[in-house]
Every structure is written in structure tokens, then in C-alpha cells.
Design a protein around this nucleic acid. Structure first.
Lengths: 230, 230
DNA sequence: AACCGCTTGTGAACGCAGGTACAAAGTCGC
DNA sequence: GCGACTTTGTACCTGCGTTCACAAGCGGTT
């Protein structure tokens, strides 16, 4: 019993904690023993005060006048994020994207292990991807039960994503990462995070067009009157 | 001159507009001519009032008592998002993830076309992926200039992402979608959006552990007393 | 041993996004 | 032609996230 959860951590903060953890790994490799909030914030691309507030949700973990101990902070973040030991994940839909994810070294090195790869296409069953063999979708329930997978990743076409999701939930998965472009509905107690790649591009397209086509607000026509330019 | 930008659109709204546009495409395929905000919101997974507020940023585009005309709304959203015609994109780093993105049909159907694929590995140069040939990274500047690509996608390893980003910006790209796990620094006037896949998993791991390990707030031990269970 | 500078941790204000509730408006039925 | 119903559009409010600014605390120095 660590009684270490006096404050609740906002989800936006959790996402940043994961970023800090990665930056810390780089610093540890470089042999650094301490870091200041300013340096860490710069590397993570956030505000220093915000970073300190994020870390303060875990309780005091720095030393005033010195900074944060790299190794100690790594441990603390690892524990807070729940990645102390490897977490088993199942991935459904081994298309191009699914195969890329299954083979992505960044997951394994951060404590995520794909213990089950499932696909509905018989032609794909039996393939080995990232050290795991693709199995038929019919075995979803048994794979989840046998591996006690806690996280499910969906990279199927949109039209089957909801049914796959339902089966994952029924099998006991309570955390789902969805790459299919649909809004999944799940019962209370199940968390879904959605990654929508084309939405990201469309937001960029919007910003692009806003710059080019809607200058009344963004335009900078100030002709630099004269005098000491710069 | 359409003078159609009286209000500025929040970025969170823009991201949802892209989702609405996709849902509308499905409705149009189904032959629907009109939709209510409630139905559209349910399909997109958002609040109906929020959806109406989002759409109202584009000016009135519905008919009271009737709903929204599917075709008209599609046009309006397409124009607002700046995807009326195909937008050329360049993709740097043709690993598994890069190849999956280059081949992803969801991009092409939404007005994004990869006109340049670049990789530093000579073994990969010349490969054809998604209808385009991989070219050496040295040609980055000429490809950007020749295609007038407005969006750059970075799927390189983290250690070269910043230099690739700098070259893209120098070549004239002002919108960047970054999959590398680093915070890119860019000059003002350039937009960067970051997709961090392992962060998504770590957030799920956190929520998972919070449920299992810190139940004082989330626990639901109510044993369903009796009566009309349902 | 006391001072000084540096860095953390936190309290307060600001701005923004999301939700609720109501008024405006248009259509359908009689 | 008029009334009632449906649905949009918007004003208000609440809550969260972010930022700024300051006080507390620790190490190094003399």
C-alpha cells in the first residue's frame, strides 16, 4: 500500500508524462544525473511551469535549487504510468498499418508487447509479424483469455470495427486504441482512445488555407516604416 | 471574394468538422438528403449542441425544423477545410509506417495525394509504394519545389526528424505532420501536428492501472440490492 | 555559521472548450 | 390561412487546462 494517489491526474497531464519519460530516457543514455524543469520542458516542447505542475501531481519529486534526479524521476513516471512491467496487447486487423504497428520497436521498448495478432483474411493467417504469428479472428476470445491482454488495438476497416470492439470488450479488454475512422460505443468502464490520421491532415489543410486565403487576421503587411530595422 | 470568415474557428472544432465530413460521405452514399444535428452527432460521437455550434462557425447552414442538407453541408465543409481539390503531400521516411501511410486509401479519397516519397536508405529507393516511386532524400528540395507540396509528413527515426523538418521548411513546406517521437522546433508561420503512438498506449496503460490499483474513486461495489434488476 | 542564488512547488487569474437551456424560424397539417 | 411542432442557432454558465507570478527550500560559498 503506497497511499500515493492523493490527487487525481488530468488526462492531458498523463499524455505529457509519457513524453517526459521518453525525454528522460534520452538524458539517461547521455549520462546526465540531474535536469532542471526548464531544460526538460524545452526538450518536451512545453511550458516549464506546466511541467512542474504536471510532475507535482505525483507528489514532490525534485530538489529545490538542484532539479530532478533523472533516474529517480524515470522510476516515478514509470510507476505512475503503469508500465513497470510489460503490458500484453492484442492487435486486430493486420493490414499495412497493423503490421507496421506490430513491428514498431517503440512499443516494445516502452513496455508494450503484442501477444496476439488477429486478422479475418485467411491469406494473412500464419504470417509472422514482429515476432508473433497472425491468427484467425475466430480465436479472438481465446487469445484474450489466454494472454490476459489488457489493451486492444483496432486497425480494421471501419465497417467491422464496432463488432471487433464489442468482442474485445466481451472478452475482458477494457482499454482500446482505435485507428478505424468510426466512433466506437462502449459500456461504462471501458476507455477508448481514437487516432484519426486523415483528420490530422485535414486540420493541416485548414490551417494552410487559412494562411493563404484568409489573411485579414494573419496578414503582416507592416512595411517596416524606417529607422533601425530589426 | 467570399467575405466568409467573420468568425475564427477553434482548432478543436476544425478536427471535428473533418469527422462530420466523413460521416456525411457515408450518409450521401446511403442516399440521404437531409440529417438532423442529433443524428449526425450520434454518428460522430459528440454532443448535438456542440455539433450545431461547430457548424455555426461556418455561418447558418441548416434549415430550422428540417435539418441539414447533406450535399450542401458536404460542400460547405469541404470548402472550409480547404480540401476542395487534391493537396500534394511529401512523405519522408519510408519504413513500415511510412509505407503504410503512403498506401492508405483513406488519404487519397479525402483529397490528399502523396506526390513525393523520400528515404535515405538506398535499398529502398526505387520501390513503388501506393503508386509513387521512392526517391533519395537528396532530392527533397527539388521534389518539394517541383510538386509545390504544401504538406510534409515525417516518419523518420527521431534523430533525423529535426533536420528533415528544417529542410522541408526551407523548401517551402508550411504544414508538417510529425510521427517521430520528438518535439520539432519550427519558425513562426509553420504549423506542426504531432502523432505519438506510444503516448496513446501509455495513456491507456495509466487508465488501466488507475482502475485496478486506485479504486477508491472508481470502484462500483454496489451489489445491486434487489428489485427490478435491469 | 550565515548569506546568496538557483530551482521547485503552488496559489491565483486568465482564456477556452463543453454543456444546458431557451428563443427564433421554418414546415406541415387542418 | 393559421396554429402547433420540429429543429436550428445562440446566449449563459460551469468546469478544466494553461499561464503567470511568488513564496518556500536547498546547496554552495565565504
Amino acid at each position: 500500500m503506497t497511499q500515493s494517489r492523493p490527487r487525481i491526474v488530468p488526462e492531458a497531464t498523463v499524455a505529457r508524462l509519457a513524453v517526459y519519460l521518453r525525454v528522460l530516457a534520452g538524458l539517461a543514455d547521455g549520462g546526465r544525473s540531474h535536469v532542471s524543469s526548464g531544460e526538460l520542458a524545452a526538450a518536451a516542447g512545453v511550458n516549464p511551469a506546466g511541467l512542474r505542475k504536471d510532475l507535482s501531481y505525483l507528489g514532490p519529486c525534485g530538489v529545490r535549487g538542484v532539479g530532478y534526479a533523472v533516474a529517480g524521476l524515470q522510476e516515478r513516471l514509470t510507476a505512475a504510468l503503469g508500465v513497470e512491467r510489460s503490458r500484453p496487447c492484442v492487435l486486430v486487423g493486420i493490414g499495412r498499418l497493423g503490421a507496421a504497428l506490430a513491428d514498431y520497436a517503440g512499443f516494445a521498448s516502452r513496455g508494450f508487447e503484442f501477444v496476439g495478432l488477429l486478422d479475418a483474411d485467411p491469406a494473412r493467417v500464419g504470417d509472422r509479424v514482429g515476432g508473433c504469428t497472425v491468427r484467425p479472428i475466430e480465436e479472438l476470445e481465446s487469445v484474450v483469455a489466454g494472454t490476459r491482454a489488457s489493451i486492444g488495438v483496432i486497425t480494421t476497416p471501419a465497417d467491422v470495427a464496432q463488432s471487433v470492439c464489442d468482442r474485445l470488450v466481451a472478452a475482458g479488454v477494457r482499454s482500446i486504441l482505435n485507428f478505424a475512422p468510426v466512433a466506437l460505443s462502449v459500456p461504462a468502464g471501458v476507455d477508448v482512445r481514437k487516432v484519426d490520421l486523415s483528420v490530422e491532415l485535414q486540420v493541416l489543410a485548414f490551417l494552410d488555407q487559412q494562411r493563404d486565403g484568409g489573411p485579414p487576421t494573419v496578414v503582416v503587411p507592416v512595411p517596416v516604416p524606417a529607422g533601425g530595422a530589426r
